[in-house]
Simulated assay, not measured.
Amino acid sequence: MKVSKLKEQTVPKIFTQNEFKEIIIKITNKSDFNFVIENELHKNESDLFWKITNEFNDTKKPLAYILENKYFYNSDFYVNENVLIPRPETELIVEEVLKLNLDEKNLFDVCCGSGCIGISIKNINDSVNLYLSDISPKALEVTKINLDKHKIKGQLICSDYLEVFKKVNVKPDVITINPPYIDIEDQNVGESVRNYEPHIALFAENNGLIFYEKLFNDLDFLYNLNKELTIFCEFGFSQKEELEKLFSPLIVKYNIDFKKDYANNWRMFVITSKESHG
């Protein structure tokens, strides 16, 4: 059957355009979807397509977990149910970090999950010294698979959030953080997300703010390690006002710059020291 015919049958009835594209790229092992669209699938490819479709329909499992793959910042990443599925809005962190001079700098990807942030950055600038930390040993197994997949060198550290900086004797130059930030009581979380993605990577106490509270409380400690440090951190689009309140006692010593994602939602902040950046 032609790929275009499969598309007619399943988009948008079952899959979005992007989901269909991800499946076809995966089962044909071809990166050029526009080339494949007019092709006939081999029987084994067609059978695999319907197997994936049936599993998606029957289980409501996120497609990335079925494919064990998610495209992020121009690359494919292995994913399973031990890590959060990379989101397009998180690519903003990568883009912002790449604006810095990263040559020979020490980059810490904290709460790294699949490793997609740190690995994407090192894919662009291989001179970066990459450190990836997560509290979950099973998540770090996925990170290791992606390091090998991308032929990237990085040091893996199993550590609870910012405790990593008490574990290793390395001066951080850049820290990226995509912490859990969904309120435990939030009823707007999609069923497939709640049922399949790791809760340890999704939900946080104190209305989803506890990891930001810990970060702000530890800023003096972190900037004592390196006054030139830059911190990039993602947050939920509705949390900006609360974060500004939490940060307000620190504005004498630190800058915080809030940035919007591609959908025009507030999505991340950048922290620098006023002592070094004015």
Rank of each mutant, 00 (worst) to 15 (best):
P86H: 08
S159W: 01
V128G: 06
I184M: 12
E185P: 15
I152N: 09
E96C: 06
E95I: 11
K167G: 00
S114I: 09
L107M: 04
D126T: 14
S120A: 12
V174W: 03
N74S: 13
I135E: 08
I175K: 01
E81A: 15
S120I: 10
H150C: 07
N82Y: 08
C158Q: 13
T143E: 10
Q155A: 12
Y161P: 13
K151I: 13
S127E: 07
K149Q: 09
K171T: 11
D109L: 08
P179A: 08
G113P: 02
K99I: 08
K151S: 11
V174M: 05
K166L: 13
K138N: 14
V164G: 00
V168E: 02
I135C: 15
E96W: 11
V168C: 03
C112N: 07
N146L: 05
L107P: 04
K166H: 09
G118V: 04
P137R: 13
L107D: 00
Q187V: 13
E141F: 14
C111N: 11
H150L: 00
L156E: 08
H150W: 06
V142K: 01
P88L: 08
D103T: 15
P172W: 02
K122D: 04
L102V: 09
I93A: 06
N80T: 14
I145H: 10
S133R: 06
P180V: 09
G115D: 03
N80M: 07
V170I: 05
I119E: 07
I184G: 08
D109Y: 05
L100H: 15
N101F: 15
L130D: 01
K153Q: 15
L140Q: 00
N129V: 10
I182A: 01
T176L: 09
Y73P: 03
K167V: 10
P137Y: 09
Y161C: 12
N74R: 11
D103K: 09
I177N: 03
Y131M: 04
S120Y: 07
L84Y: 06
S75T: 11
L92A: 12
K167D: 06
I145W: 11
D109Q: 07
E89H: 09
Q187H: 14
K171P: 08
S120F: 05
C158S: 15
V168K: 04
V142N: 03
L102Y: 04
K138Q: 11
I135G: 15
T143V: 07
N106M: 04
P88C: 10
S136K: 05
F165V: 00
I175V: 06
Q155F: 15
N129P: 00
Y131H: 05
L98A: 11
L140K: 03
L140Y: 04
N146P: 01
G113E: 01
V128I: 05
R87S: 10
A139N: 07
